[in-house]
């Protein structure tokens, strides 16, 4: 009871409910205990969600009353070159950064689990970028590192490659610096993988090696299948998070979309629409499209997941 159990998340996600003590008057107590949360749910979550759904069909600048415009915001969106750019940049960002981030996380977790000295120490060290990676300080650092006289070019110089390219200033490479920043933050999913690996009973490996299965075979027949629920969990979580990245892109892009809007992540464009141009209706429509997009991608993830996730207990 002194520590949280290190069971992987996926195992605890099941809503198994134990026996319940029937008490008269629990309902009133529940109102007391759930009160704050319920008020928040209505006033700060569901209410605003409905309000933004309404605003999505209006023109609203925060000063005059909203005017109903039907589907105008949506038709505008699909013909807005900046929105299309934001969409392209975001999908590229998510589709590239998440697989690389998870690949590194998995590799390192496997390596650490294999038995090295100081696992705890290394786990912490590899986690630190996740701890600080989304901060403004790191975004400022990134601007220098990938600037024309930055650390990255200095490093290339040591390898004999002379470069004065500003990787952040060049619209063809800027997004890659942002992707690299996310990949650098692979520590958090790595910790989750490690916890998952710890759950795999060692007897499985022992009996497998007695049956003559080599390490390669053991990896594909035991480790990977049993790790698929954890991999799935990480995948779902990181995709949802990646779609919403704002701060790093905003700072690295110099309070905007960066060179030729190559860093115009969806959230950055949404922020500009709402809080720089005060097009609240348009921004609300964009927010709902994002919600639906994330919802569809997540649902798709769950559907595809049925074909590759191995559940050990059924």
């Amino acid at each position: 009871m002194t520590a949280l159990s290190t069971e992987p998340v996926t195992a605890t996600l099941k809503t198994g409910s134990a026996r319940k003590v029937r008490r008269p008057g629990d309902g009133r107590w529940a109102a007391v205990f759930l009160g704050p949360w319920a008020i928040g749910l209505v006033l700060l979550t569901i209410g605003p969600m409905m309000a933004s759904l309404y605003l999505a069909f209006t023109d609203y600048d925060l000063l005059t009353t909203p005017t109903w415009t039907g589907f105008d915001n949506f038709t505008r969106m699909f013909t807005d070159p900046l929105w299309q750019k934001a969409m392209t940049v975001t999908i590229m960002y998510v589709a590239v950064s998440v697989p690389f981030q998870l690949a590194f996380a998995l590799m390192l977790a496997l390596a650490l689990n294999k038995g090295v000295w100081g696992v705890g120490f290394f786990r912490s060290v590899y986690y630190i970028p996740s701890l600080v990676g989304t901060s403004v300080a790191i975004a400022i650092l990134w601007r220098q590192v990938f600037g024309s006289a930055g650390l990255f070019n200095q490093g290339l110089g040591l390898l004999g490659i002379e470069s004065t390219t500003s990787w952040i200033g060049d619209s063809s490479t800027a997004l890659w610096t942002l992707i690299l920043l996310r990949v650098w933050e692979f520590g958090a999913p790595m910790v989750i993988f490690l916890a998952g690996l710890r759950q795999i009973p060692t007897e499985l490996y022992e009996s497998a090696s007695l049956d003559g299965a080599g390490p390669w075979r053991q990896f594909w027949k035991i480790t990977m299948p049993l790790l698929t629920p954890v991999l799935f969990f990480n995948l779902v979580l990181q995709i949802i998070n990646a779609f919403q990245v704002f701060g790093s892109a905003y700072i690295i892009g110099g309070n905007g979309g960066g060179p030729a809007n190559s860093l115009l992540l969806y959230s950055v464009y949404l922020y500009q629409a709402a809080f720089a141009n005060f097009e609240m209706g348009y921004a609300a429509a964009m927010a709902w499209v994002l919600l639906i997009l994330i919802g569809v991608v997540t649902a798709l993830n769950f559907w595809v997941g049925r074909f590759w996730i191995t559940y050990s207990d059924d």
């Binding site: 700060l44 919403q244 927010a287 994330i294």
Partner: peptide
């Protein structure tokens, strides 16, 4: 799991 963007404007 709700994205903050969808509530932040209202």
């Amino acid at each position: 799991m709700l994205p903050a963007q969808v509530t932040i404007i209202p």
